[in-house]
Nucleic acid binder design. Structure first.
Lengths: 204, 204
DNA sequence: ATCCATCTAGTACCTGAGTACGATACGGCG
DNA sequence: CGCCGTATCGTACTCAGGTACTAGATGGAT
């Protein structure tokens, strides 16, 4: 596998060193400030580090334009699905952990250089969920362990209703709602209603 | 880059020849019928050719199970986004054109063998569009009112992290986390972290 | 020089949530 | 009949979460 030429924008010296090992010194180019991107020839491979303050200094349209003119790989030292999603929607061609294994980073660069898009596992899972069987797959799993009454309580609790509200809605006491919730938590292996909400709504 | 061992199921001799060039003869294994998959050790890399009649002979649950037990790459000589989507939802780890460039196929195998998911450009675009419709109005709106630090706290709180955990992760006190959360709640017009989670994850 | 946003933090307080350890009632099933 | 799952409810307790009021340190903008 050949090593690809690319530019990188980062404040992080350690990160720069890592990427230098991925390319021969003649094919890596360090950008001094985000404005330098405009000077580059189009369709090149560029790595952006989200921890750099340069990234936040520019508005979305700027990055959108960059993504159209180049192949952008965004790396983050504190990656999250939301951040990744935001960048991919802007048009980035890759998003991954800045300190992922070198083999992984190498792979990302190769894939993106080849004109494809690279997306990590967890974000990929989420994209798939967003498309189709959002309900059918995830909601099947958490429901089956619960009784009908528990499902009703779980749905409401996951919808941010307080115990008292749930109680009044169901015509029972708050204490009973708590009983149901305790049973629910035990069955699902969780400990509070926020985790329940994530389960019910198909996140985790 | 090393070549990975994998199994392949196809009726197409030409296709088999192509894949044989991707692996040394000792590491490729040709499956005789889809039932042979059950004999394989778990978590292996398997290539499935959708043009083979074996694929249609089995029901969805069979393939779903396969996808859970192995890393499945589906290749099609007449690929479509819909077909790809269907396989990815079943749990396949990759979907591409059976007669794509050898470098591409090699890349797909490497990516999938590395535990990641491979998705082509056009399908990727579609996935992003699908999620963008739901998310862009909700997820983009909750972020823009908040400061960067608040976004970080909000993301973690929405992920069911306790105030103490967040504090330790960010190197600040629990009290400060509470301050940020109070500011977040005020800005978003909500009153607790569960409602925050629903906002952050695009529900309500 | 001044003002404002942001990040940080202390003390004190209230409340909802969850748990512990119970209880009663009802219906199905061997 | 007794056993068990389900649904209901009591009291009392602990504790994380959220609020109120306050305030020092930055740093950028006017």
């Amino acid at each position: 596998m050949s090593r690809h030429a690319f530019s990188i924008l980062t404040d992080d010296e350690a990160l720069f060193s890592r990427f230098r090992t991925l390319a021969s010194s003649s094919t890596i180019h360090r950008l001094q400030g985000c404005k330098a991107i405009d000077e580059l020839p189009a369709h090149g491979l560029i790595v952006l580090d989200t921890s750099g303050h340069d990234l936040r200094s520019q508005p979305e349209p700027f990055w959108q334009r960059c993504c159209q003119q180049h192949r952008i790989v965004v790396v983050s030292s504190t990656p999250s699905d939301d951040e990744g999603l935001a960048w991919l929607e802007l048009g980035a061609a890759g998003y991954c952990h800045a300190y992922a294994a070198e083999e992984t980073l190498q792979q990302v660069l190769e894939v993106v250089a080849g004109g494809e898009v690279w997306v990590g596992r967890s974000l990929m899972t989420r994209l798939l969920k967003g498309i189709g069987a959002h309900r059918s797959q995830s909601s099947r799993s958490w429901t089956e362990a619960l009784t009908e009454r528990e499902r009703e309580v779980a749905r409401r609790a996951a919808d941010a209703e307080s115990n008292l509200v749930i109680a009044q809605a169901l015509g029972i006491t708050e204490r009973t709602v708590k009983s149901h919730l305790t049973a629910i938590f035990e069955k699902l292996g969780i400990s509070d209603r926020l985790q329940l909400a994530l389960k019910v709504h198909g996140i985790r």
